[in-house]
Design a binder for these strands. Structure first.
Lengths: 365, 365
DNA sequence: CTGAAAGCGCTTACAG
DNA sequence: CTGAAAGCGCTTACAG
């Protein structure tokens, strides 16, 4: 059916080895031979069978990226960045989504794609440490995001506590004192939103205040609807905040929608800060102040680490597990700053400069 | 390095053929033998090498989905639906993004992943018919979306003209007469937004009006910024519409942001309709009226067609190229209907019922 | 119900 | 600079 190396070799009157050399752009092929082979390749329309190459090389050049949900723009944007970062290493990305379910996350982490992928980048939500420590086999693994584990894997994440503190600090500086936190998840022993919630507590304490736990709202997930439900629940209980710090941007956007429905003005009555810096937040009717993780740095570091570990399988000494901290910054927009007529942000122009800048964070320990 | 079939066969004291039979769940294996083999598999931690299987079978079970941009929620949501639809056929999805560039689209359509993928689903923006007619090789191909080609490939798309007419009809019914169209692209000989623009023209003509071409705004792409830029340009030229029909939801959202900036009320001063029904539109501060294509039907039909064509390569007669039309409906929200206090849509509840329903459209011709 | 053997299309020491 | 041959780990007629 397909045209094979052998067919090309036959036509060019050389061995398959020589054709292989030409196809793989190896040196030490006589110019005349190369031309003859190339001519045969073109004439026959030969295209290498990647599948055979994979089997022979023991490598596929495919890495998997497993995210909770592609419907969350943060992960869609991150996936785009990972695809680009991987292309720089000539790696192809296979996308998996786990729905944030522990079982699916554990399955993926065990490398259920047997030998199809060379490595895996996983952004877990509910995965537990034991899922990782009992991991027998599976490809090299790099972890992404807020969840941390005592397991020997590279972990790429911004300093979530510091980032959350910066956001809360910003709200405190605006004079807000009743700052709600949206996106705690009670069902999980170890809070996915652990660190951001801790940042909320620490910063309020550092300012001399007392964290009001009745302003911490649980959600069952992390999407727009969860934000709307949590915000509505808070208001229905009569716990009206003067500011909201949400686990992420879509939760913040869902909350903002409910605030408007209830006739509360953003930011005059309630200031709102999100997390992720998704494109959508910049174009919301009231543009969203947010913590902006450096997505392309996250993607780049993750792919670099993974590629290094894949290479290390060939006998190089593998580096110890690293903890890498890409940068982040607070982007102040209308949901906290209002819209002074003369300094209105223009969403059609390049992204505005950050206002507060958190420490970009050095590499791991 | 890995454990192979042979290792398992050795330990179980059977031939590799028998192990293969067990692994692939073939019948006609004596229960005792099966148990013995299974025990060996577990003890050795054997996992099939997919790469070898692919080579031998000549199939990988991987299909590619190429979309312009994962950052556009419509494509992210569609990708999720395709991944799910493919899982039902035990197919894995490889995601490519083309940035809507003709060269990249043409490259992908030629199946540049040589034998790695069994088939391709492509949603083209700038691809031209000749790119397809000169296509020599490449895997089975299914086309998605508004662009149509005179080429023998399956094409899955809602009735874009009818859908656009329904949207414009809705605006006309509200008494709007200066309806702008956002998202024409002049640089391309054959408009990507061809059909939706045609629907705009036809419906205005059908209502006895005259399409005002000065209200057709070109964009350089199809994202939020493009919508904002186009809207601003229209207003700066003094061409104030009383309604906007946008090529898609993100363009509509970008436009809505600018309208608000300029102190225009939505929908009182300007009603807005988008296209795609992305989740974001439901939670916008003024929720967005939109044409909702049936994304899961699109995904399902595309995967079904592709899987059928892949199977047809084994000698079955391939069906002629089909044109399949999944359904769509108009979802009316606040950006055209306003927010009557007593019927406010609750974004935290299930999606609202459609108000106008376009013909769901029969299967192909 | 099970086995021995060929072959999918490459890459890679090993020779020359 | 080029060739002959083995082998990556499977699946699959073909026998028995």
């Amino acid at each position: 059916m397909g045209v094979s190396l052998k067919d090309v070799a036959l036509r060019a009157g050389v061995s398959v080895k020589t054709v292989s050399n030409v196809v793989n752009d190896f040196p030490h092929v006589a110019p005349g031979t190369r031309a003859r082979v190339q001519e045969a390749i073109d004439a026959l329309g030969y295209r290498p069978n990647l599948t055979a190459r994979h089997l022979r090389r023991g490598r596929t050049g495919i890495i998997a990226l497993a995210v909770p949900e592609l419907g969350n723009p943060y992960f869609a944007e991150l996936a785009g960045a990972v695809i680009d970062a991987a292309a720089a290493h000539e790696q192809t990305v296979l996308l998996d989504h786990t729905a944030g379910l522990r079982d699916k996350e554990a399955l993926v982490s065990r490398g259920f794609r047997g030998h199809l992928i060379d490595g895996l980048i996983l952004s877990p939500i509910q995965l537990e440490a034991e899922d990782l420590t009992t991991r027998q086999e599976g490809p090299p693994l790099v972890l992404l995001g807020e969840r941390e584990y005592d397991a020997p894997y590279d972990h790429i994440a911004i300093d979530n506590v510091a980032a959350a503190r910066t956001a809360v600090r910003h709200l405190l500086d605006l004079g807000r004192r009743r700052i709600a936190f949206l996106g705690a998840r009670e069902e999980s022993a170890r809070q996915p939103a652990h660190l951001r919630l801790r940042g909320w507590r620490e910063e309020i304490l550092a300012s001399g205040g007392t964290p009001d736990e009745s302003l911490v709202a649980a959600t069952s997930g992390y999407d727009r609807r969860d934000g709307a439900v949590a915000m509505r629940a808070l208001l229905d209980l009569g716990r009206r905040p003067d500011a909201v710090f949400a686990y992420n941007d879509v939760v913040a956007l869902g909350a903002m929608r409910v605030l408007t429905e209830r006739g509360l003005r953003v930011p005059e009555d309630v200031a709102v800060v999100g997390f992720d810096d998704i494109e959508e937040g910049r174009y919301a009717t009231v543009s969203l102040t947010t913590v902006a993780p450096d997505k392309s740095a996250i993607a780049r570091l993750a792919v670099d680490c993974l590629v290094e570990r894949i290479a290390a399988q060939d006998g190089d000494a593998a580096p110890p597990a690293r903890r890498l901290r890409p940068g982040h910054r607070l982007v102040v927009r209308e949901s906290t700053a209002g819209r002074p007529a003369d300094t209105a942000e223009d969403p059609a122009r390049p992204p505005p400069p950050s206002v507060a800048r958190a420490q970009p964070g050095p590499g791991g320990p």
